[in-house]
């Protein structure tokens, strides 16, 4: 009697309980019944799928570091459970970060008027950014949309991080080949704690011995110094600081300017050329 009665009570309570299931709560599911996406472009994954994605994309991107899509997938697959929430909370603890989360600005060549950026005063953040894009020959439109992060707000945080990445490049002046990318990833790892940025450091094994030595003596110490001492880079409202002086911004964020890698490479190349010419002259 009492057992029956108790079950009756549970059912009654279940009936009266509010059926207010929010869309962002994900219950366990299988490959066969995938729940509806939480935001346009969202692909809900099970834990096993997520793990496989992380492993596959990690191996793939180590084999070919130019596969930006694999690096992006690795970033999304490893951002949960903890890290992306920490990054979001870092944004929520800061007035500017909150404003970014509220406005949800996107960085594309449409939202940023490139011709206008090129007219900004010399040494402004916007001009530096445009110059960097031109120098590296990249465009802000090449960023993939986030698809594997379940929480819709965290997905935006990931998107924002990805789109701001070029600004970090511009402010630090680091180029997009592996050496510069690794230096920046080391800085980002200490700054954002996203696991992907840390995992990217494994690409160290692909570098040439001279590059390795340069990285260990020059750029890694710089990344550690700046990464630990700087403010949260995610909380910079880039769209609003375009006209600011870039040195001023660096001082504000407490980031030093690293040695310019392209300059170093140029100097080394010239040195090698001179060496070669000298040898040729000597042999002649």
């Amino acid at each position: 009697m009492s057992v029956l009665g108790r079950r009756g009570a549970i059912e009654l309570r279940a009936l009266t309980a509010s059926s207010n299931l929010s869309a962002s709560t994900l219950r366990p599911f299988s490959v066969l019944n995938r729940p509806p996406p939480n935001y346009p472009g969202h692909v809900p994954l099970t834990t096993i799928e997520r793990g496989a994605l992380a492993l596959g994309s990690a191996i793939g991107s180590l084999i070919n570091p130019r596969r930006a899509d694999l690096i992006a997938a690795l970033g999304e697959a490893t951002a949960t459970p903890f890290f992306i929430y920490r990054l979001r909370d870092a944004m929520l603890s800061d007035p500017t970060g909150r404003r970014i989360l509220r406005d949800r600005p996107r960085i594309t060549s449409e939202t940023l008027n490139m011709t206008h950026l090129r007219t900004l005063p010399e040494n402004s953040v916007g001009r530096t950014y445009a110059k960097w894009l031109d120098r590296e020959g990249v465009s802000p439109d090449t960023r993939d949309n986030v698809q594997y992060i379940d929480n819709e707000e965290c997905a935006y945080v990931m998107q924002r991080y990805r789109e701001c990445h070029d600004f970090y490049h511009a402010v630090t002046g680091l180029p997009i080949f592996v050496e510069g990318e690794l230096a920046l990833k080391a800085l980002e790892f200490l700054n954002t704690l996203l696991p992907m940025t840390g995992l990217s450091l494994f690409a160290f094994v692909r570098m040439k011995p001279a590059e390795k030595e340069r990285f260990l003596t020059l750029h890694l110490p710089w990344a550690i110094r700046s990464g630990l001492g700087s403010k949260e880079l995610i909380n910079v409202y880039w769209e609003e600081v375009l006209e600011k002086d870039v040195d001023e911004l660096r001082a504000e964020l407490n980031i030093e300017r690293p040695p310019d890698l392209r300059e170093i490479r140029k100097m080394i190349r010239q040195q090698q050329k001179r060496e070669k010419e000298r040898q040729q002259q000597a042999s002649n």
Binding site: A17, S18, T25, R102, E153
Partner: peptide, 11 residues
């Protein structure tokens, strides 16, 4: 109002 939209509310 803004944060309540992005916070899963318990029952």
């Amino acid at each position: 109002t803004w944060r309540a939209q992005h916070t899963p509310l318990p029952s």
